[in-house]
Design a protein around this nucleic acid. Structure first.
Lengths: 122, 122
DNA sequence: TTTCACTGTTTACAGATGTAGTCGATTCGA
DNA sequence: TCGAATCGACTACATCTGTAAACAGTGAAA
């Protein structure tokens, strides 16, 4: 059970899930727009992720190339489960009901969901 | 926009959302099973929630009676939005698709969702 | 060869969080 | 009435988080 990923660390993971492996400088470049972090900050986050075994590093000359160990899919699954458990007693239907009540479902969402359910029934 | 509720604080909120108002001792009693907290811990959490204006306290003799200011509904809405934004680009359909892929949807969920969608279409 | 740019590593430091202990006031039971 | 229980307030303290600065090593440019 890999450890918890903080908000800031998550931003780094997003970059690495999109492209990997990358050097610390690359990652800094890619997260520059969203967060204005210095490369020092990114290095700290990378070290912490390394220590938690969320990512791995492979030496390349004098630098390291970082890559995810935990895949995005697995992470999202874990987080989703935690979220649904915590706020909706582990049931998905109340979650969707809630989103619907809050008008957080677009017509497009609704159509996709219908198609999805149809597929699930078969 | 009310401040962030930590994990421990959330456990206290759950109790208060179920029954309120309650004294610190009551809350301690109600969270005893899930978390084994001392009353001191609960008092600290209540103070922090007070400071964040997530709950309010009304004096009752020598004690305080605590009650939620932020309603569960509002909290869940905020958290849901944050969650869906962060992990699914703000779209609900991919979230449900993901839950489906992970077999996190029961037959019951599926039926409820169908009914829900039917209602939404009208 | 000297200097500079760039590495990773170590250290920093304030604020949030989890989990209480201590303290002074007060009320309640004996 | 007097001690025990209880209350809220204040203090404590380790860990995590966000955000870096300082530093030491090294490879590249001049």
């Amino acid at each position: 059970m890999s450890e918890k990923v903080s908000d800031a660390e998550y931003a780094v993971m997003e970059a690495l899930w999109e492209i990997s492996p990358m050097t610390a400088a690359d990652v800094t470049e890619r997260v520059k727009e969203s967060r204005g972090w210095s490369i020092q900050t990114v290095k700290t986050l990378l070290s912490r992720l390394l220590a938690k075994d969320i990512i791995a590093a492979e030496q390349d000359g004098r630098r390291f190339l970082y890559r995810p160990v935990v895949e995005r899919e697995a992470y999202v699954t874990g987080e989703s489960r935690r979220f649904v458990d915590r706020l909706f007693g582990g049931r998905a239907a109340p979650l969707v009901a809630h989103l619907a009540e809050q008008d957080q479902l677009s017509r497009e969402d609704i159509e996709e969901l219908e198609a999805l359910l149809k597929a699930l029934k078969s």
